[in-house]
């Protein structure tokens, strides 16, 4: 659904470029993404025929109706992002830090239930757990992780020792092996 909203906005304002924070280390189809990633007028991504980007030479030419998704942080890792936040003292949303939160366990993911939009299925219940979000995506498709890391140092320490990938909490990725690629082809970032 955030893809639809995005496409509508891009169509309405006819933007030439939309910047995104996606990184190649997040997911295996994003690992193939360009820095200047061309989209057709229908916002489709042609993963097999991407423009080569040798050195730092980006081809920014496009035809009418086409657009670019631009990923300046392509080669950053999750670690780089947090180190940078620490060095530059950048404010981040509190959901990244652990706190007691109302959680529903669904399909192995910890989904936060803090308003009425999410309806409980039979057998589900809300419990308070100490959690934080490692990644923030569509609600209610982003799972939290159990954590006690309530400040930046702890978050960085926790991440260094982590044995699961950053997007593990994203239900959207797990439909099938190429799920993210399919979503990207349809216009997802």
């Amino acid at each position: 659904m955030k893809t639809e909203a995005l496409k509508q906005a891009l169509d309405k304002y006819k933007f030439d470029m939309a910047f995104g924070g996606a990184r190649r280390d997040e997911e295996k189809s994003r690992a193939k993404e360009r820095v200047f990633s061309l989209r057709t007028p229908e916002h489709r991504w042609d993963a097999k025929n991407q423009r080569p980007e040798p050195w730092r030479l980006f081809n920014t030419r496009k035809k009418k109706g086409e657009s670019f998704r631009v990923f300046p942080l392509s080669n950053w890792t999750e670690q780089d992002v947090w180190d940078y936040i620490a060095i530059e003292n950048i404010p981040v949303v509190p959901l990244y830090f652990a706190a007691p939160r109302p959680i529903v366990k669904r399909d192995g993911a910890l989904i936060m239930k803090d308003d009425e939009r999410m309806e409980l299925k039979p057998g589900e219940s809300v419990e308070t757990m100490m959690v934080r979000f490692r990644t923030l995506g569509c609600y209610p498709l982003t799972g939290a992780v159990e954590s006690s890391a309530a400040n930046l140092d702890d978050v960085i320490a926790e991440m260094r020792g982590s044995r699961v990938s950053e997007r593990q909490g994203r239900v959207i990725d797990q439909d099938s092996g190429a799920s993210m690629e399919e979503k990207k082809q349809e216009g997802y970032f």
Binding site: D83, I85, A86, I87, N89, P91, V92, P94, F97, A150, N151, L152, D153, I156
Partner: peptide
């Protein structure tokens, strides 16, 4: 602030 007291962490 969770970030308030953090020391710059330069690896």
């Amino acid at each position: 602030d969770p970030q308030g007291a953090m020391q710059p962490l330069v690896s």
